[in-house]
Structures are given as structure tokens and as C-alpha cells.
Design a binder for these strands. Structure first.
Lengths: 233, 233
DNA sequence: TAGATTGTTAATCGATTAACAATC
DNA sequence: TAGATTGTTAATCGATTAACAATC
């Protein structure tokens, strides 16, 4: 028989897929809040996202008991509870690593600012870029990253360098003490287990989309409802 | 008893999750190819991606029989077969809709160009932007989209407008005949079923990352191996 | 041949959905 | 109270993994 008494040391971590859905619930809740609603049922919350009410309740139950039988969920309370649960009830200072086109785009991305993700520093290894000022931030040499990270000013890094240098720069980020990397380079990174990486590979997303479009059209073609749109050159 | 004889009309479409993995296999295969390998086993292909050999074989089997027992897969053949299966053995002309920071970044994104995704037009509803030239392309008014789409020049659109106007512009794209939308606005879009949408919500990704970092650190904290990095202001 | 590796079937695992007693 | 909706258990579904005969 296993020693179950000592289990609680494990941090109960909701599955990745649940965390993703909770982000969506949060957006939906904010939309309902803006419309003036004060309470909401699991069915109402799930409907616009095409998620079943049982799924909604089970996901929320991962983080605690927020609902009131017969009534539903109080929107203000639920938003607060979910933000706390996701850890976004505080500021998250970000660093942009690599100031190419993508890095500049992220500097201006409002989706971060409205969610307490704040870009507070820019690093680049190109001496020609160091010292330039964008959005009120001066580009610093990559060597400065360690100081910023160890002083606790920065926890997450947006890795925006070309694929060729991504692993090398990621190694430097790890060495500097960064524990979370949002990776935009289309290569899988190798990092120690205590470092967290989420890769956003836009060409993977586009390939997914192309496949859906292609298959969808073949499906329609098979039923003879659409002229050929793909494959004709 | 159901009429099984008429089933084949359905297009057998590999599950979304399989298509995502196949994109990763493709990148890995190209890496092995560059290193000079000519054949590869399911174990070798899966290892760098932390995917089990059985999973690799099962995923590939969705698209046909490509392997040779006792030998493995011939890399050149497999790359060709997978590209065909995913529909990326042809050019996919793209339109950028909305020329803000993000739109400009995508114009310069090499990850697209190297995979036969080609941005061939830019549309914006802001008259001040129409007529400007970026990367050799002249910004056109949104009304021109329909002509470009129906002439078959464009199948996929990269939607890069602010959240507030995303649904309105998506409606125009649908009306113009675009069948695939890569949506960068952090709002879920409502579109007819024959239109395919993939949403890339960067703040959802960042929220996932923040959660992992937070939980990872709590885990380490609980075991007393790390000083507090989060929550101190 | 002996060794390696496939494609596929069966077993396992985890996630989604349905159902319902408990509650307001 | 009657109606609504929760949290949770049990049933269903789908995806992952293991195992192995067939093959080179």
C-alpha cells in the first residue's frame, strides 16, 4: 500500500487543457459583465464558446466551489477567483528578447497591456540596436538580462529571435534565471525541467488552417456544391 | 441498423491534434534531412519531440502506408507524402487584413515564406493607409478583397485588426469568399460552418505560461528549494 | 538467417458527457 | 414550496500506449 498520507506535497495542477478553457471563460465573463449581467449559469457561460454546461462546472470545480445551486455564479466573484487561480491578479513584467519585426509588434500589442502583462525591458544582442528607444524603453544588451531577472524585475521572456539563434538565446535566458519563455521561433527548445516554455508556431497554425480548408472543400466538392477552388493554378 | 454502405461520402479527416503533430514531424524530418540522414525510424523521429514511437506510427498511418518494416521511413518520400497530405505541396496565397504593428510583423515573418505561404495582398479600411507600399505590396481598400478572393488569388486571410472591429471585418471576409481565417484578435469569431477559423490568442498563451511558472514555483517552494520569486512586490 | 521495425489490434488511460441528489 | 442550478458520481467516448504478427 502506498504512503498516501504524504501526497499533499504535490501541487495539484489543473490540466493544461482546462487552463486554456478557463482563459476563455474569463474573456466571456468580462463580456457579460460589460453587458450588465451580475450572475450567470454554467449553460449561459458555455453556450457562446460551444462548451457543454457539465464541462464548464467541472473545469471551474478544479479551482474551488464558486457556484450557488439554483442561482449560478456571481460574475464579479468568479472573475476575481479565476484571475487569482490563474495567477493573473498581479502584474507580470515581461522582457522582449530580440527586436525584429515581431518584437516590435508585440511592443504595441494591446492584448497584453489590458491583462496586466507589461513589457518592461527589451534586449538584443545586435550592438547596432542597443541604445535605441521604442515605446519608451531603451534596448539593452543581452548581458543585462541576468541582472534584471535576478533582481526579480522580470519573470517571463518573449523570445522573438530568428530560428537559427533561438536555442542559443534561450540558453542565455535560462542562465539568466528566466523561468517562463513564450517562444515564437519555429523550433522546439530544449530547456531544463524547471523552465516553462510555450511555443507559438504560426506556420503550424497556418498548416492546420490550410488542412481544414482543403478537407472542408474536398468534402463540399464530393457533394458537388462548390466549384474547385484549390489545386487549380 | 444504420445504412453503413453510404458512409464513404464523409471525407476522412485526421483529428486536429494529429495534424498539429504532423507539422512537428515535418520540421523534425527536415532537420534530419539537413543533417544528411536518408531513413529514420518512428523511435528516432519521436524522441526529440518526446512522442512515443507507437504514436508516431499511428499518426502517420492516418495518411497512408509510408514505412518499410525493418528499415523505417525514407525521409525524402515521407516529407513529400506529408506535405501532400497536409496540402502544403502548393503555394497558399495569403492576404493580410489590417496593417497595424502585427500586420507589419507578419509581412516580414520568414516562417511563412519558407513554407510556401505567400502574402500577396494587404487590405485596410483606413483610407490613410490605402496606397502605402510595404514589402512591395500596395495597401488596398477592404472593398477590393472580394474581387481578389473570387478570382481565386487568395484563399486564406490573416486577420490583424483590433478586437473591436474583428467580427465586423471577419463578416466582410466571409462575404468576400475567404474560407480560412487566421485570427489574431483576442475574441472568438462567429462564422458560417463552411468557413474555417484558427484563433491565435497570445494572451491566452501567456496566461498558460504564467500559470505554469506560478505552479512550478509553488511546487518548488513547498519543498523549500527556491526563494519566493512571485508575489513579492 | 537474425535483427530491426513496421502497421494494427487490444489494453490502458484520461477527458467529456449525462444523470442526479443536494441546495438555494 | 416549485423551479433552477450546482458539484459530483458514473457512463461514455476518444486518444495514447503496449504488444505482436508480418515483413524486409
Amino acid at each position: 500500500m502506498k504512503d498516501l498520507g504524504r501526497e499533499p506535497e504535490h501541487v495539484k495542477m489543473a490540466p493544461r487543457v482546462v487552463v486554456g478553457r478557463v482563459s476563455l471563460y474569463l474573456r466571456q465573463l468580462e463580456a457579460f459583465q460589460r453587458q450588465g449581467y451580475t450572475t450567470i449559469s454554467s449553460s449561459q457561460l458555455g453556450a457562446p464558446l460551444s462548451i457543454k454546461n457539465a464541462q464548464v462546472r467541472k473545469d471551474l470545480a478544479c479551482f474551488g466551489q464558486f457556484g450557488h445551486p439554483g442561482v449560478g455564479y456571481r460574475i464579479d466573484d468568479l472573475i476575481g477567483a479565476l484571475r487569482r487561480a490563474l495567477g493573473i491578479d498581479r502584474d507580470w513584467p515581461l522582457a522582449v528578447i530580440g527586436l525584429g519585426n515581431l518584437g516590435r509588434a508585440l511592443l504595441g500589442y494591446r492584448g497584453f497591456r489590458t491583462r496586466r502583462f507589461k513589457i518592461v525591458a527589451i534586449f538584443d544582442s545586435d550592438p547596432a540596436k542597443v541604445g535605441q528607444v521604442y515605446e519608451g524603453l531603451t534596448v539593452e544588451p543581452l548581458e543585462n538580462l541576468k541582472k534584471a531577472a535576478t533582481s526579480g524585475k522580470i519573470h517571463l521572456g518573449l523570445l522573438c529571435v530568428p530560428a537559427e539563434s533561438a536555442q542559443r538565446v534561450a540558453d542565455q535566458m535560462v542562465h539568466a534565471g528566466i523561468t517562463g519563455i513564450l517562444n515564437f521561433a519555429p523550433v522546439p527548445l530544449t530547456v531544463p525541467p524547471q523552465v516553462n516554455v510555450v511555443t507559438v508556431d504560426l506556420s503550424v497554425q497556418l498548416e492546420n488552417l490550410a488542412y481544414k480548408v482543403l478537407k472542408g472543400q474536398e468534402g463540399l466538392l464530393a457533394r458537388g456544391t462548390l466549384p474547385a477552388l484549390v489545386g487549380d493554378r
